[in-house]
């Protein structure tokens, strides 16, 4: 509906101004943090405020990885690896399991279907903080507290319902005819799935995977209780650790924030188109 209404020039400028302000509000906070990550600490504390970085530096990042002469704060490299391992593993498993579930919802009629679907969705509504309390008790007794495995399992569970929701939507967009045609062409149902339906749902699965990855990568409430040491602490937990120290290290934290945001940013750009399609189709169709 791009050119349905005819605007007067002043209206057009008003719209552009409004959009500009909104975008500024969305961008500036993040940009400010990024800028801070490349500033020396003195510049942050300076009065009057220094707006443009005068002495851009990579020192904050070097410090995070213990490469600088300055005192080393946190084992950020280890946190980064933990975060990657936990997020990727839980995402892969959640997507495989969720895809099977989404396919079942998209392609079969069975007893209790609607109830089961709702149950999956409601399982996702349980707040992480509330879930962390009993999980803490059980995981402690099972001895999987402060292990990557313990957190991977939890993130799988968090991501499965949403993956089911998304893949259900994507599979329903693929006509059943295609799988049937493949079976007549000589495929087993299993072959028909992998050769026809899977390739066609690939973009949807990619977006489901990104969502799952982002959720795991960004999660804090559960990770903060279920991890204890460098053995399993993730980046968000590490970021919080900064504030626990006596003096707030704004530049160090900003550098860590940049490290957290970069993978998320890259992934989101790659699949942004599918992301929106996935959300809307899953819901409306």
């Amino acid at each position: 509906m791009s050119r349905l209404s005819i605007e007067k020039p002043w209206q057009r400028w008003l719209i552009r101004f409004g959009v500009f302000v909104a975008m500024a509000i969305l961008c500036v906070p993040g940009l400010w943090v990024v800028l801070t990550a490349f500033r020396p600490n003195i510049e942050v504390l300076a009065r009057p405020a220094v707006w443009i970085p005068q002495n851009p530096t990579l020192d904050n990042f070097a410090r995070l990885f213990g490469l600088s002469s300055a005192q080393q704060g946190l084992p950020v490299a280890q946190y980064f690896v933990n975060s990657l391992v936990i997020s990727i593993t839980s995402t892969l498993v959640a997507v495989v399991i969720g895809m099977a579930g989404g396919y079942a919802f998209a392609r079969y009629r069975f007893k209790g279907k609607a109830t089961l679907f709702l149950a999956f969705m409601l399982s996702r509504t349980v707040p992480g903080v509330a879930l962390s309390l009993p999980l803490f008790i059980i995981w402690a007794r099972l001895g999987i507290i402060d292990t990557s495995f313990g957190l991977i399992v939890v993130y799988m569970a968090i991501n499965i319902p949403f993956t089911i929701w998304l893949t259900d939507g994507f599979f329903r967009q693929i006509p059943v005819d295609l799988s049937e045609a493949a079976q007549i062409d000589g495929c087993t149902p299993w072959q028909a799935f992998w050769r026809i339906e899977f390739p066609l749902a690939r973009s949807g699965l990619a977006s489901a995977a990104i969502f799952a990855f982002l959720t795991s990568w960004n999660e804090y409430a559960l990770a903060s209780q279920l991890t204890r040491t460098t053995a399993s602490k993730t980046m968000p937990v590490g970021l919080m650790d900064f504030t626990a120290q006596f003096t707030v290290d704004w530049t160090g934290m900003s550098a860590m924030a940049v490290l957290i945001i970069i993978p998320a940013l890259v992934l989101t750009f790659i699949v942004q188109k599918h992301l929106i399609a996935g959300l809307t189709f899953g819901g409306v169709k």
Binding site: P175, A181, Q183, D185, G186, T188
Partner: peptide, 15 residues
């Protein structure tokens, strides 16, 4: 199963 019947089919949607 369909694959064992040695048939072929043209669908309304072409598929």
């Amino acid at each position: 199963p369909p694959r064992a019947r040695n048939i072929s089919m043209v669908f309304q949607s072409y598929a």
